[in-house]
Simulated assay, not measured.
Amino acid sequence: MRLAGLLLSAALCLGLVAPAAAAPAPVGGYQVVRAFAHDTAAFTEGLFYHDGFIFESTGLAGRSFIRKWSLETGAVEQERLIDSRYFGEGIVDWKNKLYELTWTNELGFIYDIDSFEAVGEFRYPGEGWALTRDDKRLMMSDGTSFIRFLDPETLKETGRIEVTDDGVPVRNLNELEWVKGELLANVWQTTRIARIDVKTGKVLGWIELAGLLKEAGVTGQRDDVLNGIAYDATGDRLFVTGKLWPKLFEIKLTAPSR
């Protein structure tokens, strides 16, 4: 067996035997568990679940806000409008703070998570699209195929990875969520969520959500695209929505078909 292995390695080096071809990541689906009402005026950019509430940020200049609202009743518990000079983007919580990106201003805002009072700002190069975190660092998308890692205390970049599927860069990475050791990312203007290994940048699998467009009563062909992922770790509940959608869905993932 050792000799056979050596011969195979030599053949590969000489180009006499082609290596096994890689393959695109498998595509899985979903089942709807429950639907909740969602504000159709919310141009969703950021979404996360925290202490029993949905925290959401929206875009569009003059219409951007951050909001805390109840899933069960839809009641808005806390809200802050963003200065009309800025197009709001993704948000994430860290300790007692909430961080928010803006699209093209290379400027982020820091708020007290309970009062939404502004307590600081931070800078970054390029565009800001989305934020999420694990227990050690923040992760940021900027519309490219790269994910940046940020120190949660200084907000400085500490590294980055390029996301690929079968060696091809996956661009337009948008809203992010950290779920069970994987990074989930909406791909802008598609109906798919990428499941990403943050050690390698490789897409482990895709979640195809095209069927949600009909259930939400949207076309997904204009501004009403899929965007927004939130995870309730305690209840093991995964939520998704889209820009200007009338519904937010709790879903269960299904395995790829073979």
Rank of each mutant, 00 (worst) to 15 (best):
M1T: 13
L6C: 09
L8V: 13
A10P: 13
A10N: 12
L12I: 06
C13Y: 15
L14K: 13
P19N: 05
A22M: 06
P26R: 00
P26K: 01
G28N: 02
R34N: 12
D39P: 06
E45D: 10
D51W: 09
E56F: 01
S57V: 02
S57T: 04
L60F: 14
L60Q: 14
R63A: 11
R63T: 07
I66W: 00
G74M: 11
A75G: 11
A75M: 08
A75F: 10
E79S: 08
E79Q: 09
R80M: 03
R85N: 10
E89K: 09
V92S: 04
D93E: 11
N105C: 15
N105M: 14
F109Y: 04
D112W: 12
S115H: 13
F116M: 07
F116P: 04
G120F: 06
F122Q: 09
R123H: 14
Y124Q: 05
P125Q: 08
G126Q: 10
L131K: 02
T132E: 00
R137Q: 10
L138C: 06
M139K: 05
S141L: 03
T144M: 02
F146S: 12
R148L: 12
R148P: 12
F149C: 06
L150D: 00
E153H: 15
L155G: 13
E157M: 12
R160P: 13
V163D: 00
G167V: 01
G167L: 02
E175W: 00
E175V: 03
L176K: 02
L176E: 00
W178H: 01
L184P: 00
N186Y: 00
N186D: 05
Q189K: 09
T190V: 10
A194H: 07
I196E: 01
D197Y: 04
D197A: 02
T200F: 01
G201D: 06
L204R: 08
A210N: 11
Q221M: 14
R222V: 15
L226E: 05
G228T: 03
Y231V: 10
D232A: 04
L238R: 04
F239V: 02
V240I: 09
F249E: 07
L253S: 03
P256L: 02
P256A: 03
